[in-house]
Design a protein around this nucleic acid. Structure first.
Lengths: 128, 128
DNA sequence: TAGGAAATGCAACTGAATTGCATTAGTTTT
DNA sequence: AAAACTAATGCAATTCAGTTGCATTTCCTA
């Protein structure tokens, strides 16, 4: 059986994501961890964390992939990620709005597995 | 003043999109038009069509960019693209659900400019 | 139909992401 | 505590999507 290990790089990246108020891209993380580990390793660690359900992937409206921790995963074992993300065009940050759940009425015969809902505009920090 | 011209390649691509029931990626279009025009030209034509408001861009959940015509643009001059897109994981097609408009309750001080709402799962064609 | 500008083709370039493989470092077992 | 197993890492090379510069072509209009 395949196991997963706790390495220093993995722990550092996981902590980084948990302490960040916004979602981080691969490049953000690379800038932050510096020479702690290789560029390629960051890709692989992020894949692993997604696989393990520790973080989730967000595709921003500009196509850039960002990552954020799954805040509600502990409390909800069968968690889904159907909350709203907000992408600020001014400060270029992506935030998880964990409490905002969108509603919609689909035609019959569509079976939804995942939801990806991103709003873009001006965030409260930038609107002032 | 800058004008825009109707070239054979542009017309062909526009027709292709209008006649397609699903959104098309750059690669889809390239396969379809064959040697009619260059790879780079397709990129530039798609940019132009988006600019002109003839088509809109959809970022799929896997990060692939797809394009679809703006069906309601003629009737709604100040149209927005806040309808739902459905991405089928089985047949890998993206469809515009023009009539499905999501609703959500944002915290105050968020100013929304654009909406990007993509559901993924199994489409009616594949569920049978 | 002639002139000016938009559009195209081609080649080169950029940057993000992936792959293969040798090496390193967690984890488990004795 | 040392050995052994294998996940994880680093590095170099590669792939792929998308962009840019520039010479040439094609469209439009005056």
């Amino acid at each position: 059986m395949k196991s997963t290990r706790n390495t220093t790089a993995k722990s550092a990246i996981q902590l980084l994501l948990q302490q960040s108020s916004v979602a981080l891209s691969h490049k953000d993380i690379q800038n932050e961890v510096g020479k702690l580990c290789n560029r390629v390793t960051i890709y692989r660690i992020l894949d692993r964390l997604v696989e393990e359900g520790e973080i989730h992937k967000i595709i921003n409206t500009d196509g850039v992939i960002k990552y954020a921790p799954c805040n509600q995963c502990e409390s909800h074992p069968n968690h889904n990620h159907d909350h709203v993300h907000f992408s600020c065009v001014k400060c270029d940050t992506v935030t998880c709005l964990d409490n905002v759940q969108p509603s919609y009425n689909l035609p019959p015969d569509y079976k939804v597995q995942e939801v990806n809902f991103t709003l873009s505009g001006i965030c409260p920090n930038c609107i002032k």
